[in-house]
Amino acid sequence: MRDDFLEIKNVTCGYPGGFMLNSLNLTLQKGAFAGIIGRNGSGKSTLFKSITGDIKLTGGSVKLDGISLSGLTLKERARRIATVPQFVETGPITVREHVLMGRVPWLSRFSYSYNKTDNEIAEKYINLTGLNKLSDNPLTGISGGELQLSAIASALTQEPSLLLLDEPTAHLDIHYQAMIMDMLYSLNRAEKLTVLMIIHDLNLAGEYCDYLVMMKDGKICADGTPEEVLSSRNIMDAFGADVLITPHPVTGRPVILRNPGNRPEQQTINDSMPGSVQLSYHGN
């Protein structure tokens, strides 16, 4: 297909004697808003690393817009792909400096300072993320949500065509979760920015993503629209969790509810043996 933007073909990579991705295939269209879901250790981050180049491919290829990434220099790669890591590093720099760092791949070799355009682009994303009042604060002096926003602003300042985010809403309150997802969604729609994120919150995944990839044991076990992927059977298969799926009353998107039928019953204290605790389970 001509619209194939990110093409991951037969990718094999991993850690010697450890976790491996084996002949993995994945294709994303330009302008997709895609999510990768799966249990911890299912290969989501390794898949990311195969795209960012943090891990060497032992087989297969990753192409972006028809260009093989393995043939690109780190700098050329950084002009196309920006990453927001799971744990954003802090340091003794201001929010503005952090955001401006996104211009580093666009600086010419050995250049010493950012030009007017660089500053304007950084300013644009500082404003978009609402960090304008904090732009002179050090990263060590802002909240976790603000740090995440700063990392996103920095990645956007890179002006990538593909934005990778590793759990952008983990550890954040519902306000920041909605704010960050809304912002990414509107950028995706307005500027055709292709977004691929690892996401643990299945409800957020179902609400925002238009394409979902479900991973298990280093393989893709399901992919498609949220309605297709987020079935109780798939979730039982990939996560071993018993869930109920119901359409959202407003959007009609799938909403995942845990099935309480399988939950450990309340702790009961055995009167004859004070202090001892017994857990009893339904079903088994």
């Binding site: 960012t52 180049g53 943090d54 220099t73 780190l74 700098k75 050329e76 790669r77 950084a78 002009r79 792909i81 920006a82 990453t83 890591p85 590093e89 802090t90 340091g91 003794p92 720099i93 400096e97 952090h98 760092m101 996104g102 580093v104 791949p105 600086l107 050995f110 250049s111 010493y112 890179q158």
Partner: peptide
């Protein structure tokens, strides 16, 4: 060494971040 100021600046947030910014 001043020619390496930009890479050094990027490495303030770790090697991984610097690499993602295109710095070898």
């Amino acid at each position: 060494t001043i020619l390496f100021a930009v890479p050094l600046n990027a490495m303030r947030l770790g090697e991984a971040k610097a690499r993602h910014l295109g710095i070898n």
